[in-house]
């Protein structure tokens, strides 16, 4: 036993706990069961171990040991690939798919969380070595809070106003408010669509939001989340019953048409509000120099 054992163990524990904390199973139901969780907990444990040994190896002047961190980076990139591949494969069999943009967002989050684990165990070990155990406990709590803040992204409710509109037919065209959704010819299908369908209008709060919700991946994420949380009136072989989101070209509003099993307007609104704004869908046209000139 040398003087580094307890500090490293403290860092390891803090890091692993941080990974557990960030691995919550929520309504998106991913990862669900033990196997998926074990993969991420083990990789989180390895990440914690790497973070914890940085300061001791520095103190022992073993600088080459620190280069092992580069190995970690390539490992975690592999985690991202793994998540992307799994989710893309599984997505083909979803009634309403997540879409590539959403999958990429999830994969990025999985990679990023491992780096947060390294950071947590690094600062915990460092504060144990420099100060004492209590400082380490305090620092690990602070970094957990920081992790929570860093891992939660924006929500759609922050950038759009959501309004319920009953969908209707004009001839064979299905509309939500004044936004054309699709052409459904068969009268029986039309009846089903009116019986189960719900329409929502998302009005962007500013110019940036307008471009973000125009992104097809972002729109697919909305449809996926609503269909997951409220169920979906659809099966293979009923291609006409498909949730869609279309855009009003004039003002950038988006009309969302969904077919939930549970028709509850308030719940649906809340779900749409809580859809994450996808990292890869966010655009900031107002930051462009030409737009700032006035």
């Amino acid at each position: 036993m040398n003087e580094y054992v307890y500090p490293v163990l403290a860092g390891l524990a803090a890091g692993t706990f941080a990974r557990m904390y960030m691995l919550r199973t929520d309504y998106r139901q991913y990862p669900t069961f033990l196997h998926g969780k074990i993969i991420h907990l083990s990789i989180g444990f390895i990440a914690a171990g790497l973070g914890a040994i940085v300061v001791p190896s520095f103190m022992e002047e073993e600088f080459t040991a620190i280069t092992f961190l580069t190995l970690a980076a390539s490992q975690f990139r592999e985690v991202r690939n793994m998540e992307r591949n799994t989710l893309t494969e599984v997505d083909q069999y979803e009634l309403v798919g997540r879409g590539k943009t959403y999958i990429e967002g999830i994969a990025i989050a999985f990679e990023g969380r491992n780096y947060l684990v390294i950071l947590t165990s690094f600062v915990t070990t460092a504060s144990y070595l420099i100060f004492n155990l209590w400082a380490a406990v305090a620092v690990s709590i602070v970094s957990l809070l920081l992790c929570r803040k860093l891992m939660s992204g924006g929500r759609l409710g922050e950038i759009v106003d959501i309004e319920y509109k009953e969908p209707y037919f004009e001839g064979a065209g299905l509309y939500v408010d004044n936004i054309y959704i699709m052409n459904i010819g068969h009268p029986e299908r039309q009846k089903e669509v009116l019986k189960y369908g719900m329409g929502f209008i998302l009005t962007p709060k500013n110019f940036n939001a307008r471009t973000t919700i125009a992104n097809l991946g972002q729109r697919q994420a909305i449809l996926h989340d609503v269909s997951t949380a409220l169920g979906i009136f659809r099966d293979s072989g009923t291609p006409a019953l498909v949730p869609l989101a279309k855009r009003d070209l004039d003002d950038g509003r988006v009309g969302v048409f969904v077919l939930p099993q549970e028709r509850n307007i308030e719940k649906a609104k809340e779900i749409i509000q809580n859809v994450p704004t996808l990292e890869t869908a966010i655009r900031m046209p107002t930051k462009a120099e030409v737009n700032q000139k006035g």
Binding site: G171, A172, N183, G185, T238, A240
Partner: peptide
Amino acid sequence: MDHFAANLEAILDGIAHS
């Protein structure tokens, strides 16, 4: 026509547009 369209929709996995 409706009858045909409904069956073809299910069989071909396509949407009947009018």
